Amino acid sequence: MAELAALWIVRHGESTANVAAARAESSGAELIGLTHRDADVPLSPTGEEQARATGRWLAGLPPHRRPDVAVTSPYLRAVRTAELALDGTGIPVSRDERLRDRELGVLDGLTPHGVRARYPDEAERRTRLGKFYYRPPGGEAWTDVALRLRALLGDLRRDHAGRRVVLFGHDALVFVLRYLVEGLTEAELVALTRQDLIMNCAVTGWSTGGADRLALDCFNDVSHLRQEGTPPTREDEVRAKPV
């Protein structure tokens, strides 16, 4: 199958849930205190500013390097990030449910402390099975996310061979895309998640550079935010997933 010329994924801007999660975790609370279902969580004012700065970065790319097409998660925070970042670019954008965030099932809305306090058996099972294969009741394992992203990549390669595609999604998707695109092992993927938290509006990208496969160009890059004078969300403010 033919390869894409370039692929990027942009994590959504800071959301109100990111802010609430940081507050809950710092106070030792068990519940994040969400007022929306996960699909309807909006961007914070800082998140909107980050998305606009990402748009200025996209607009500043040379024409031969700009994305040809965009695909976004249907979740509001990703859709709004895409709208703000793509405004005025003319890049066509579509939504694909395979780019939704990882579903946490019964653990949704809990801080890591809340998971340990309310579901100690699940916390133990997660430790035993490991991040990659653990599936919370009613939720998804990382392997489930990999299955849907593998299918999406196949469709993108078929429908947009030789073109440049930008995705707008969520932190777990960034890691899983690296696993799929670069052929990482479980151990290599888990090591990545221990080293880095994906920043809001961070860019991760791959390109072929004339070769026959995608190679990593940048990972978790927020230099475009700093150059614009837009504050990246501090790592300790990024919503830490409990599993």
Rank of each mutant, 00 (worst) to 15 (best):
F168S: 04
L184G: 04
R77V: 15
V71N: 07
L129G: 05
G55N: 14
T16L: 12
T233M: 03
G229C: 01
E49H: 14
P45V: 04
R158G: 13
A211I: 06
D38A: 05
P242N: 15
R158I: 03
G130N: 07
T111L: 03
A5G: 10
E237G: 06
G209Q: 05
V174H: 00
V69M: 14
C218A: 09
A17H: 10
L43Q: 04
A240M: 14
R56W: 03
A59F: 03
R23P: 01
W142A: 02
R11V: 04
V165Y: 00
R118T: 07
L76I: 10
L197V: 09
L31G: 05
T185A: 01
D217P: 04
G169D: 02
R239I: 07
R125Y: 02
I198S: 01
A151M: 11
G33M: 09
G205D: 02
R157A: 11
L153S: 01
V166S: 01
L173P: 00
L4A: 10
G130E: 15
G33W: 13
T143R: 12
H36G: 13
R80G: 08
W142R: 10
A215D: 13
A141G: 13
R234M: 09
Y134A: 08
T185Q: 02
G183N: 09
L197A: 12
E124C: 14
A70Y: 04
H12E: 06
G114C: 09
P42A: 10
V243I: 08
D108A: 10
G90R: 08
M199Q: 08
E83Y: 08
R213S: 08
R65P: 09
A161C: 10
E237D: 15
L153I: 15
N200Y: 01
P92K: 04
E182T: 01
R65N: 10
L61I: 09
P136I: 11
D87H: 05
D212I: 13
E188A: 12
G60R: 06
R178F: 00
R118S: 14
R116H: 15
L99V: 11
H170V: 08
G105D: 03
V10N: 02
G33E: 09
I9P: 00
E3D: 14
R126P: 02
L58Q: 03
D217L: 03
P92I: 03
L76S: 05
E103F: 07
